[in-house]
Design a protein around this nucleic acid. Structure first.
Length: 423
DNA sequence: TCTGGGGTCCTTTTGCCC
DNA sequence: TCTGGGGCAAAAGGACCC
């Protein structure tokens, strides 16, 4: 499929104002985090740059194309990335800058259509059906978006234009970086079938392996396999889904805003931990953080779950559903701690702990019976006061006593108050 | 090669009720 | 009274995505 040369621009062959039958755009920023970093550090342009945590256990969050040339890609362990590309400049992530840049590009999208579905900070689907009269064909809209973002934000993006979300997403991936690709309705099957199975949304390492054992290597192979065979190998839902995708069938529409179904926080320790006191303190911190986010969004949740990852990377979860939904950190913590203690881990070495609240609903629509002297109520008011203080004085200004670090807690505290680390 | 942190969705198992 | 099984919700695990 040639890039951007499928049809002459402006010669309608389909419905008026639409030269391809396409209605969906997928916009994907190129090496987003790394590109944002380059805005403030132009001297790094042209160099291999890797954004990622500095610690020994970090992974690559984003890498410039110069770094990718060495085989570096996102989600790769930092250790490995440094080995592959020792000359790379490693930059710690600055999440605030990414959020701001993301908000700016989302604004550009919303100027085109209100039907914007963000998938992450750096990606979104746009339904441009309603924008055609005002702004031209989907291809022209895509080019306009690309030019605007490059002018205003100084970063490039790639745009896939298609009849469905999933084909649009594959199209943007095919024309990366800094490209645009239109896949007209009539060319969907020809576009899809040569692709490797791993290109399909929902096919990761495990599924790919199952498919490989069935002798299926391309999307076309899947298309020519009976649905029943796929379903027996992969389960009814996944099997049917992949079969449909392989023929370009994807009913999902562009939905502007889906509320979160769960909110959580987790942390990988710098070194494995077996001390129950340290683990309990971490559960408290994560519970407070999660509950604060619930309150900030005016939400409550009923199911509390914890996640434990052992030093060998095996992972378990435990959950408990409460009679009443809550947004109180203390309640989240007490439930999380009880779940942890019930495991009776006997000082097993843990790599990660996490806390998550599921079954989320708007606090306003919940009938709030808790205010009538339930044990939550006192904590709730206290935590709301903390929220208020945090907004005025900054996060962490007020914390549970167990989270106030003491001198023997080590270097990170020292660094914090003394500004340097020399003891 | 040694694997982050934020999520979603699907499947299987289990316990409960009738 | 015992047993089977349908239906359901919760719990647990796992694959996957960015």
């Amino acid at each position: 499929m040639s890039r951007g040369q499928l049809r002459p621009i402006g010669t309608p062959t389909g419905p008026p104002g639409d030269d391809t039958g396409c209605t969906v755009l997928h916009v994907d920023m190129d090496a987003f985090f790394a590109s944002v970093e380059l805005l403030t550090r132009p001297e790094l342009r042209g160099l291999p740059v890797i954004v990622g945590g500095g610690g020994s256990r970090g992974v690559v969050l984003s890498a410039t194309y110069e770094a990718r040339a060495f085989g570096v890609h996102s989600a790769m362990p930092m250790m490995r990335a440094r080995r592959l590309c020792p000359q790379a400049v490693v930059v710690p992530p600055s999440s605030g800058a990414y959020s701001r840049a993301s908000a700016n590009v989302m604004e550009v999208f919303r100027a085109v259509t209100p039907l914007v579905e963000p998938i992450s900070l750096d990606e979104a689907f746009l339904d441009v059906r309603g924008a055609a009269k005002r702004l031209g064909t989907p291809r022209q809209i895509g080019e306009e978006i690309r030019a605007t973002i490059e002018d205003e934000q100084g970063i490039t993006c790639s745009v896939g234009v298609a009849t469905t979300k999933f084909v649009a997403k594959l199209a943007s991936a095919r024309c990366k970086p800094d490209g645009l690709l239109v896949v007209p309705a009539g060319e969907v099957v020809a576009f899809l079938h040569p692709l490797p199975v791993g290109a399909l949304w929902g096919v990761g390492e495990k599924t790919e392996e199952v498919l490989r054992k069935l002798g299926l290597h391309t999307v076309g192979d899947i298309a020519n396999t009976p649905v029943g065979t796929l379903q027996r190998a992969l389960g009814p839902a996944v099997g049917a889904h992949l079969s449909a995708l392989s023929w370009g069938r994807d009913e999902r529409s562009v939905v502007p805003h889906e509320p979160d179904k769960s909110i959580g926080a987790e942390e990988t320790f710098a070194v494995d931990v077996d001390d129950p006191t340290v683990i309990a303190r971490e559960l408290l911190r994560l519970s407070e953080r999660t509950a604060a986010r619930l309150r900030a969004g005016g939400q409550v949740g009923r199911t509390i779950s914890i996640k434990i990852r052992f030093s060998d990377f095996t992972t378990i979860t435990r959950s408990k559903t409460l009679p009443e939904a809550t947004d109180v950190g203390r309640t989240v913590y007490e439930t999380a701690l009880a779940l942890y203690e019930a495991l009776r881990l006997e000082r097993a070495r843990l790599r990660l702990v996490g806390v998550r609240v599921e079954g989320i609903a708007d606090e306003a629509v919940q009938t709030r019976q808790l205010q009538l002297g339930e044990k939550d109520s006192g904590w709730r008011e206290a935590e709301q006061a903390v929220d208020k203080a945090s907004r005025r004085f900054g996060a962490g200004a007020v914390r549970p006593a167990a989270l106030v670090r003491t001198e023997q807690d080590g270097p990170s505290f020292d660094r914090h108050i003394r500004g340097k680390r020399d003891r």
